[in-house]
């Protein structure tokens, strides 16, 4: 397989990118899994649990590759269970608490629309290891996007109560979407090498899908341009600590426990 060699890029930049990608799916997967047994109807309970499962499966691939690239013998599990909050690189959007069902769905939709564009670009990565994980995940995420967009429209263009809740969710979450498109020095390195798209390059396509869907949902796109950011460099809201406390409890209390 000599033809398919990955371009040589700064190891630290690639590790940073892989943990960002894997931490987004890990933390959102964990958040969505919190619904298990609590959804308004059984079908949605199952749908949320399956979405969470896909995201956790993708996390294993991304963080597995991150550990391999880092070369210090850390597995995907080590990265998920044994890092502290400041070492997590997920965007703030995915650590927002679930709120009501509509809030969870709106967060999922805004994320899915971005995730779909990211993976579409990554499927053409010059690093074949990145490209194959992206191509695999993309099929699942296309499925997620189809569902979350459909529900945003049904609830937005629904009863006055459901419409109000979806608009409130959108207004609250909007300022967390900007971080998805902000790049830094390590993003520049990877974009230069053709390993990953520059975050800013995803914005136009994302905006088209989002504005079209929100229009059909009869929801108003917020005009505020304020951006909450920090997650990508490890500066998180207090919510991440609570997620990790629950997620990492077992491995922290009983190091090396298996089943």
């Amino acid at each position: 397989m000599a033809a398919a060699l990955a371009p040589v890029v700064d190891k630290a930049a690639l590790f940073e990118f892989l943990t960002r990608t894997g931490d987004n799916t890990l933390i959102l997967g964990h958040r969505v899994s919190e619904w298990c047994g609590h959804s308004p109807v059984l079908e949605e309970d199952i749908a949320l649990a399956n979405t969470a499962l896909d995201l956790i499966g993708q996390t294993q691939l991304w963080l597995g590759l991150a550990g391999e690239v880092e070369g210090k013998g850390r597995s995907a599990d080590d990265l998920a269970y044994l890092r502290d909050a400041a070492e997590f690189r997920n965007v703030l959007l995915v650590e927002r608490p679930n709120g009501d069902f509509g809030f969870t769905l709106m967060r999922q939709f805004l994320f899915d629309a971005w995730h779909f564009e990211l993976l579409t670009a990554l499927a053409g990565s010059k690093d074949p290891r990145v490209a194959e994980i992206a191509a695999k995940s993309l099929k699942e995420v296309a499925y997620h996007l189809e569902r979350s967009a459909d529900l945003v429209i049904r609830l937005g263009d629904g009863t006055p109560e459901s419409r109000k809740r979806m608009q409130d969710a959108l207004d609250e979450l909007w300022s967390y979407t900007g971080e998805l498109f902000i790049g830094d020095a390590s993003d520049d390195v990877l974009a230069e090498a053709g390993v990953a798209p520059h975050p800013a390059s995803l914005k136009d396509k994302w905006s088209v899908v989002v504005s079209r869907t929100l229009a059909e949902a009869t929801l108003k796109v917020p005009t505020s341009s304020y951006v909450h950011k920090g997650g990508k460099r490890g500066v998180h809201t207090e919510h991440l600590g609570f997620i990790l406390a629950e997620m990492q409890f077992l491995q922290r209390a009983y190091p090396g426990a298996t089943w």
Partner: peptide
């Protein structure tokens, strides 16, 4: 129905069912 063409088409017809 799982061909790549459908993947792209999905985004086009997002909520049309």
């Amino acid at each position: 129905t799982a061909a790549d063409g459908r993947l792209a088409a999905r985004v086009e017809r997002l909520a049309s069912g």
